[in-house]
Structure formats: structure tokens, C-alpha cells
């Protein structure tokens, strides 16, 4: 069973959210659902923690938001990724792949540390 540390969850929240918004405009509840879906429940976020992250990304101009009427008539705040956000996501991807390579390199040389 996975047990991601709090700081790792925090660090991954940015690429995760940007990645989800890359797929299309979305709102808070749906983003949470999508995270659960992709991670198959491995990533346990408390729902509320998502919002400050969204607000920070918005402040940093990586995403934008707008209140819109949904199809079923509910008023929701929708988030969309910006051009700057896409660039940032690309950078994040590179960072995560890089990190993965470092870890892999380490663990393939000295398998004893891998378990």
C-alpha cells in the first residue's frame, strides 16, 4: 500500500492539477474525482486542500477561473490552464522525469537500497 508523505503530495499537486486542466476546463469537485480516478485511490487528498492550491496557481497566472452555469444548472467556478500554465506543466514534467531517472539510476546500481 502506498503512503505518500504530506510534502510529496504537496509537491505533486501542481503538476497534477495542471495536467488535469490540460485535458480540459474543470471545476473543484470534478478535479478531485479525476485525481481519485487516475490514482485509483492511492492519492488521498482532503478535498478542501485543493482550493488553496488552485487559488495560488491562479495568482501565479498558470490557470484562470470563471463562474459559469453548468448544464444541470448549478453555478460553478471553472478553471482553465493558461499558456503560462502549459509551459510550467512542461517544466514540471521534465523535473519529475529527471527525478525518476536519478532514482532509477541509484536503485539499479545498488538494489539493496531499493527495498
Amino acid at each position: 500500500m502506498f503512503s505518500f508523505s504530506k510534502s510529496l503530495v504537496a509537491a505533486s499537486s501542481k503538476p497534477l492539477i495542471l495536467g488535469i486542466l490540460q485535458e480540459g476546463t474543470s471545476y473543484g469537485y470534478a478535479i478531485i474525482q479525476r485525481v481519485k480516478e487516475i490514482s485509483q485511490g492511492k492519492l488521498e487528498w482532503s478535498d478542501g486542500m485543493l482550493y488553496p492550491v488552485l487559488h495560488r496557481l491562479e495568482k501565479e497566472k498558470l490557470i484562470t477561473s470563471q463562474w459559469m452555469q453548468s448544464e444541470e444548472g448549478r453555478h460553478r467556478k471553472y478553471y482553465a490552464i493558461t499558456e503560462l500554465g502549459k509551459q510550467s506543466l512542461h517544466q514540471e514534467k521534465m523535473n519529475w522525469y529527471g527525478m525518476q531517472e536519478v532514482m532509477e539510476a541509484l536503485w539499479s546500481i545498488n538494489p539493496s537500497t531499493s527495498n
Binding site: 482532503s46 478542501g48 486542500m49 482550493y51 488553496p52 492550491v53 487559488h55 495560488r56 495568482k59 501565479e60
Partner: peptide
């Protein structure tokens, strides 16, 4: 359950404050 899933409100509050000032802008 919905309320529980939302998590600790005061923690969110703190994060929300940081979201606004920690950006430096």
C-alpha cells in the same frame, strides 16, 4: 462524509492565506 472529506477548515484557511501572500506578488 462530504464535510469530512473536505478536511480541516482551519488548515485550509491557513493554506488559503499562504496562497495569497507567499507568491511574493
Amino acid at each position: 462524509r462530504a464535510v469530512k472529506n473536505l478536511g480541516d477548515i482551519t488548515a485550509i484557511n491557513k493554506d488559503e492565506r499562504l496562497a495569497h501572500i507567499s507568491s511574493g506578488k
